[in-house]
Amino acid sequence: MSLGRVGLFIPCYIDQVYPRVGMAAVRLLEKLGVPFEFPEDQTCCGQPQFNSGCFKDAAKLAGKMFRIFKDFDWVVCPSGSCTGMVREFYELLLGREKEKDDFKHLVSHTFELCEFLIDILKVETVDGSFPHKVGLHQSCHGLRGLGLGVPSEQVLPGQTGKVKRLLESLRGIEIVTTGRSDECCGFGGTFSVFEGAVSSFIGRDRIRDYEEAGAEVIVSYDVSCLMHLDGLIRRDKKRLRVLHVAEVLNRAVA
């Protein structure tokens, strides 16, 4: 299957703080035989500015991202929230572009890593092993915005979560059942700083839920949530680890 040009979109905080997640995505795509390019000019999708309400500033960064990625056939991103930024909110920022074909193409062809595997590469199962008890953290933007899972609020009979199904195909994995299946981790971007008390309180509740469910490692498609949870885990000296889903899949596959 000829995919055309695939652009790898690496979120700013993965680039600067969690390169291992980016490298896991790289290795995984290589193992799956996906030829991709990493446009070095990219910086940030503008989400922090957008979330704070600074649409004008966010638009500057969105414009830059649009220029860098518009000529790719597909854009893949190991982050639910950054993908959501492009798919759900770029039309609010790039009003002048939104009727243009290349803009519409970018918005409809930007995929989070797991959904790219499932929906585009048609990879429903991953031949690999990950014999651990996993707490699957279904980060909010990806869950409710992109449909990476089935939100607990909704009544969608017969549907199961994409990312969950993909992970469950790994040998030996056990995805634990938590008391609250998809409550927010409390990160919320700048919320974590400006409402630090609430943010940490929510995060600690999540961690306790995963602990009580017996998880060894918390896995998510958004490393921003993991960064927040990990910060709490390490401060409280808990025994949980955090891994991005790209890292899990990469480790599992030989």
């Binding site: 909010c140 409710r144 609020e153 990160f187 919320g188 919320f191 400006f194 929510i202």
Partner: peptide, 8 residues
């Protein structure tokens, strides 16, 4: 600003 924008 008292929101994580979780969308629930």
């Amino acid at each position: 600003y008292a929101s994580t924008l979780c969308g629930s």
